[in-house]
Design a protein around this nucleic acid. Structure first.
Length: 978
RNA sequence: GGGGAUGUAGCUCAGUUGGCUAGAGUGCUUGACUGGCAGUCAAGAGGUCGUGGGUUCGACUCCCAUCUUCUCCA
């Protein structure tokens, strides 16, 4: 599940990949490296470019680490890794101890919006991407500008053999308003290097705050940076315009490839800068761009990172990729879009993020749909095809990113399902559009209509535009943009979150120690810092302690609640979360006596809630084991929620889990509970050892190198959550539902201990105490009895079982509404479906019977009434006050008479449930000829009985409150014909 | 998290200011006709109008709550 980790991690399956860099005796050893560089420098494949980078920094004593997952799980400000530094954020913020001072890696990143990127631009040009790799080297309080700059030169010029004449370097020019000086140090370092290599300082360019001052966010670590740009244009073009004039000018062939960030300040909420105690280096080099430069291409998409994909797309669509640099070349743009997006989507799914309708999942869905749209519009691909690219991607990148290989089937299925669903959306939208066009007169697509298509039905705006054009229609751009703006403002207003600065409470105490595995109660708590957070109109406070027993939300388990108190005050902790490795306690009020150092707080976790949560968490592990045992080892956890009330577990599996399998799973878990297995907690197990023991590890999770392992017999998982000490504390495990959440993903919900007991008790009570009397068949009685029996057997395993009165259905008459309620209740408790079906059948039969009775009754009355027809002025008048009939029967009667008697004027009165009811029917011809309107007539007549009514010209009904007025109302109705 | 839409026959969907005995097409059953591309014609079965409340003489229709599915924004 989740791990309370120090920063440094190594994923199980990735460790092997990285050993080669970290082991000096490997084939990438010192002595052989230079021969690799020399032989490959002219035709380096992308794999070798990546290897060379990592090996280079390995030789400079850097620890090589694996890419962190692209999807971020415990940072509220970020959904995806969008830069190499993300996984080191807590180090820069000082929330975690620094273990390795020098690190290098390649990091999977995703950018869809923000200052660096805009989804709608990707694929149009030749060098922006959604998903890309960022090569980076880091120094945490170790080396600074000198080494960073010199090594960058060495790698690019000496090893990768990039022509030094084509390189340019930017340095920060300073900003008076900010109080930040010009970066003369970086300037001097570049100057020395250039002069040593026979070049002059005209290769160094000064850049402003916007381009060369890097900030992590509105607040936090920041500093000047120095960028390396490369000019890959032809000699003729260079002769026309020198490269230095095109740097930072969005030229597709004069591009930034490496950014060296020198972090030396901390930005406060008031905008002021404070020097950082330790200076850091953070660099990022775009892998795909580097490949373009080294492979002598003019476009990232022409490198071997993308060409297998563009080839395959061309093959599927039958439209060749022309390697065009023209942004108007629609089919090439479409091929680039698809090649880019399939990478982003596939890697996200591999990291556990499925397409969905909100949050990170929605971003993934949008990316995928954009790819589908381009294929649909420009490559004429009207059926799912993107899923076919997964295989190519896996062949190409699976060796370095094993998560792709392991999740290939899931990725393929999910993408195909999404494609099919979106194609349906498109088909519906097109139909709607065509309706609109058919009914439109002014040859214009209104903005609001286009927006409705987009907003409500998910139909892409540019497709509407395209269709409009094809039909010779105008498109209401401005109105559309306005609607979109309003929508955005609504959303923004709903989610404004203001975060204040941390307020430090100086003390000698250490910070942020988690002691909750061993205790729920600590009495020497110091509040080390706090801040105010405002969401909409509500204020909250986040508190950080020196140490805490409160478990922060993570690994699917909800955060602890409880309180802290001293002799002055008691403050409720309403939730506990983790932000950048910092455990924050959320309260509604700010403690007032936090600075009185002598008055320590006592912290107490709500332990009954935690115990139930722990039982559910341990049960989740057993469930996981059961699934893998019974369904197969393809089952992998895809999501998990554990709280005091129930547990929810999502996992990969491609079909419905059958009733029998569910029963087996339940039995498996209950057997483990009966076996009373002790918890074996390995709090700091070396990851290698855990791996040897065959521990469950999850893709898309990052683990420390000494994670915590939770073991119940054969069930072994890396997990930072809270567990019970022996499985018998779970008492009973009961699955409450099984269903699907996405393509290839199933969800099981279950309850344990008290929750399971309550669940079963409710079930039994519902059945046994239901006033189901009389007309139930023996067969159903038996079924209910059997169900009771089964439940009782399971229930008997639970402590303090109440005694049950099993009532057998006695004689009496079964009412339809009683039966209806029974069906509703039984459905709610998910009673055996066959029982519910049978009850439903009985109900249907009874309804039918009742309807039949009514019809027969109507027939009988009709015979009677046929003898009472009075002809007056050519009109056949029938009037009668009926008893013991219902509204449906009267209606039926009226229509029967109307069908049989010409020129009919029918007035019927009745008492229904103590209230008067009046019905008028008039033959159609009569109504037309004499301009009679039953609806209007009845409205008048109903006044006599304090009621109202209405209907059509030939049939109307009315009700009232005064029964005594019924006769008068009937008289009134008759008066219209006289 | 916020907005919009959606739920009616096995399936695809109509149902317009509350009252048209809840409809169409398709599928199904039965029968008749038939050398023609989805053969034709006729008859029939099939619906808790998502669920729970409320307003009303009367709710598929209006109001409130809730669930499903879709969708946009963050």
């Amino acid at each position: 599940m989740w791990i309370v980790s120090v920063f440094y991690f190594c994923h199980s399956n990735l460790c092997t990949t990285f050993d080669k860099y970290n082991n000096f005796n490997s084939r990438y050893s010192f002595s052989r490296n230079f021969s690799i560089y020399l032989t490959l420098s002219t035709t380096m494949k992308s794999q070798e470019i990546r290897d060379t980078f990592l090996t280079f920094f390995k030789q400079k004593n850097h620890k090589i680490v694996a890419s962190a997952p692209m999807v971020i799980k415990n940072d509220p400000t970020l959904m995806f890794t969008n830069a190499g530094m993300n996984q080191f954020k807590d180090l820069f913020l000082g929330n975690s101890p620094i273990v390795h001072k020098r690190i290098a890696d390649t990091q999977k990143c995703l950018r869809v919006s923000g200052k660096h990127n805009d989804l709608e631009e990707v694929g149009v040009d030749t060098y922006h991407h959604t998903m890309f790799e960022m090569l980076g080297n880091w120094s945490f309080g170790d080396y600074f500008k000198k080494e960073a700059i010199e090594w960058a030169w060495e790698l690019l010029v000496d090893i990768y053999k990039i022509d030094k004449n084509r390189l340019y370097f930017t340095v920060f020019e300073g900003d008076a308003a900010d109080g930040t000086p010009e970066d003369t140090e970086a300037f001097g370092l570049w100057k020395d290097l250039l002069e040593k290599n026979g070049l002059t300082t005209d290769k160094i360019l000064k850049a402003n705050k916007k381009d060369n001052f890097w900030e992590m966010g509105d607040t936090g670590p920041c500093g000047p940076c120095s960028e390396i740009h490369v000019d890959i244009r032809s000699d003729e073009e260079i002769a026309k315009i020198p490269g230095k004039d095109l740097v930072n000018n969005d030229h597709p062939q004069v591009i930034e490839i490496w950014n060296l960030v020198f972090m030396e300040f901390n930005r406060m909420a008031d905008g002021k800068l404070k020097p950082l105690p330790a200076k850091h280096v953070d660099t990022g080099m775009g892998f795909e761009r580097l490949a373009m430069v080294l492979q002598g291409k003019k476009s990232n998409y022409d490198t071997d990172v993308f060409s297998p994909l563009t080839d395959k797309i061309a093959q599927i669509s039958g439209i060749p990729y022309k390697n065009s640099l023209d942004t108007q070349h629609k089919t090439d743009v479409a091929i680039r879009v698809i090649a880019d997006h399939v990478r982003a989507v596939a890697f996200s799914i591999a990291d556990g993020q499925l397409p969905s309708n909100n949050g990170a999942g929605y971003v993934i869905r949008r990316i995928l749909r954009r790819a589908i749209r381009y294929g649909y519009s420009f490559l004429n691909l009207k059926e799912a095809f993107i899923y076919e690219l997964v295989e190519i991607l896996v062949q190409q990148m699976g060796a370095f990113f094993p998560e792709l290989v392991n999740q290939q089937e899931l990725i393929t299925n999910v993408i195909r399902e999404e494609e099919e669903s979106f194609l349906r959306t498109l088909a519906k939208g097109i139909q709607r559009f065509e309706n609109y066009v058919a009914n439109s007169k002014d040859k214009k697509i209104d903005g609001p209509f286009a927006f409705e298509l987009y907003d409500t039905f998910g139909f892409p705006k540019d497709l509407t535009e395209l269709l409009a054009k094809e039909n010779g229609f105008e498109f209401g751009f401005e109105e559309f943009a306005n609607e979109l703006l309003r929508q955005k403002e609504r959303s923004r207003a709903a989610t404004t979150l203001k975060t204040g600065d941390w307020v430090d409470n100086p003390s000698d105490a250490s910070e942020n120690e988690f002691v909750g595995y061993d205790t729920t109660n600590v009495d020497d708590i110091v509040i080390t810092r706090f801040r105010k957070v405002s969401v909409k109109d509500e204020d909250f406070y986040q508190l950080v302690f020196n140490k805490t027993p409160f478990y922060p939300e993570g690994g699917g388990q909800v955060g602890d609640t409880g309180y802290i108190k001293n002799k002055f005050e008691q403050i409720e902790i309403i939730d506990t979360k983790k932000e950048n490795n910092l455990i924050v306690h959320i309260t509604k009020t700010l403690p007032e006596h936090y600075s009185d150092g002598a008055n320590l707080y006592e912290a107490k976790v709500d332990s009954s809630k935690r115990k139930l949560t722990a039982a559910n968490h341990s049960a989740t592990h057993l469930l996981h084991q059961a699934l893998r045992t019974i369904l197969g080892t393809h089952v992998e956890q895809k999501g998990s929620l554990v709280n005091a009330d129930y547990l929810r577990f999502d996992f990969s599996h491609f079909q419905k889990v059958s009733e029998e399998e569910l029963q087996q799973i339940e039995d498996f878990v209950n057997e483990k509970i009966q076996a009373a297995i002790n918890l074996n907690e390995h709090r700091e197990i070396p990851i290698e050892e855990a791996e040897e023991q065959g521990v469950m590890m999850l893709f898309g999770e990052k683990y420390g190198n000494k994670p915590r392992m939770i073991q119940f017999g054969d069930s072994k998982e890396l997990c930072g959550g809270i567990h019970i000490n022996n499985t018998k504390e779970i008492e009973l495990f009961k699955i409450t539902s099984e269903g699907s959440v996405a393509a290839g993903i199933r969800r099981i919900e279950a309850v344990t201990s008290k929750g399971a007991a309550n669940y079963l008790k409710e079930k039994i009570d519902t059945i046994t105490k239901h006033p189901l009397a009389g007309l139930i068949t023996d067969e159903i009685k038996n079924k209910i009895t059997i169900a009771q029996h089964n439940l009782l057997q399971q229930y008997a395993k639970v402590s303090d079982m109440p005694t049950l009165n099993i009532i057998s259905p006695s004689n009496g008459s079964l009412q339809i509404d009683v039966l209806s309620n029974a069906i509703a209740d039984f459905t709610k408790i998910k009673l055996d479906a066959t029982i519910i079906d049978e009850l439903n059948n009985i109900k249907k039969a009874m309804l039918k019977e009742e309807e039949q009775k009514g019809k027969e009754q109507a027939k009988a009355i009709k015979e009677e009434l046929l003898n009472e027809v009075k002809n007056s002025n050519g009109v056949n008048v029938i009037t009668k006050k009926l008893t013991a009939v219902d509204a449906a029967t009267i209606k039926d009667l009226a229509f029967q008479l109307k069908a049989q008697i010409a020129d009919l004027y029918l007035v019927l009165g009745a008492e229904i449930n103590g209230k008067p009811n009046l019905t008028i029917a008039i033959s159609d011809s009569l109504a037309t000829e004499r301009k009679l309107h039953a609806g209007n007539i009845i409205r008048e007549a109903a006044k006599e009985m304090q009621g109202g009514g209405g209907g059509q010209p030939f049939f109307a009904t009315a009700g009232g409150t005064n029964l005594n007025g019924l006769d008068a109302a009937m008289e009134k109705a008759l008066s219209f014909i006289k």
